[in-house]
């Protein structure tokens, strides 16, 4: 019986924490011949493609440890290798079950690759995975930043309705250009800070300590990352608005 498409293609960011221990590349028993699957993506006995488990996270799917620095070339190579194995084009003449699995695997693989390729998305995703264990990961809204953004939006509004060729219009424009530069510098600073946190996270994971101190450090890093990533999004949005209006 064919596997319903929507069931196998439902790859959301949420993961079942209880299923984490059984993370594996393919199900351990072949759906077709019921023998133990020893190959990585295919059953060695009946040569059928195996569905990637829905509980597999993107790092595991692509065979990378849960770290924030990733070798881009290795990631790309792995993605191409797996794409070739799963691509629906190679399953044209196969059974409907295999076609469905190939499609679902390819969809998961594409999402996994797109997410891990971008450092910011990778960090957001890691936070999603790890957030369950971190209390109060939602930080208080940055009141100062909001004040600034709202004020800037008012100035933008003023500029939009002003005569841009007038002296007042020109003045507003200069002011907004300055703001844009300041904000872009701040965004860069945030990204530098993030890089530092990424390195701290990786180092902590590499040490693999299970002490209370290590757990506290872990939570602190995650919380700081969450905070900077959020603030970066707010800054990015206002910079985009600035660019769209004055350039």
């Amino acid at each position: 019986m064919p596997v319903p498409l929507e069931a196998v293609m439902d790859h959301t960011h949420t993961h079942n924490p209880s299923g984490r221990r059984e993370l594996q590349m393919a199900r351990s028993m072949c759906w077709h011949c019921s023998s133990e699957v020893t190959g990585e993506y295919f059953c060695e006995r009946c040569v059928k493609v195996q569905p990637v488990s829905k509980d597999v996270d993107y790092f595991t799917c692509l065979g990378f440890p849960r770290r924030l620095s990733i070798d881009q070339q290795r990631l790309e190579a792995k993605f191409y290798e797996m794409s070739r194995a799963f691509h629906p084009d190679f399953f044209q003449g196969k059974t409907p079950e295999e076609q469905t699995i190939s499609l679902a695997n390819s969809a998961l693989l594409n999402t996994a690759y797109r997410t891990l390729r971008d450092p910011i998305q990778r960090a957001e995703y890691l936070l999603d995975l790890e957030a369950g264990a971190v209390k109060e990961i939602r930080t208080t809204p940055p009141a100062d930043l909001f004040e600034e953004i709202l004020e800037l939006q008012d100035t933008l509004e003023e500029y939009r309705s002003a005569d841009r060729t007038s002296a007042a219009g020109q003045q507003l424009r200069t002011k907004l250009q300055d703001e844009q530069q300041t904000l872009e510098r701040r965004k860069t600073d945030m990204e530098t800070h993030l890089q530092r946190l990424f390195a701290e996270w990786d180092a902590l994971q590499d040490r693999g300590e299970a002490t209370d101190a290590a757990r506290a450090t872990r939570d602190k890093i995650l919380k700081q990352m969450r905070e900077i990533l959020s603030n970066r999004t707010y800054v990015k949005n206002i910079v985009n608005d600035l660019v769209a209006t004055i350039s």
């Binding site: 809204p141 009141a143 909001f146 004040e147 709202l150 999004t233 707010y234 206002i238």
Partner: peptide
């Protein structure tokens, strides 16, 4: 003042209260 970190939306909502009743309210949302 609240924000959604996922999409970067920012919302400011204000109330004006007299004798325990909200007599006016204003907002600004980006």
């Amino acid at each position: 003042m609240v924000g959604a970190p996922e999409c970067g939306d920012v919302m400011k909502l204000q109330i004006k209260v007299q004798d325990d009743t909200i007599v006016d309210a204003k907002f600004k949302t980006f």
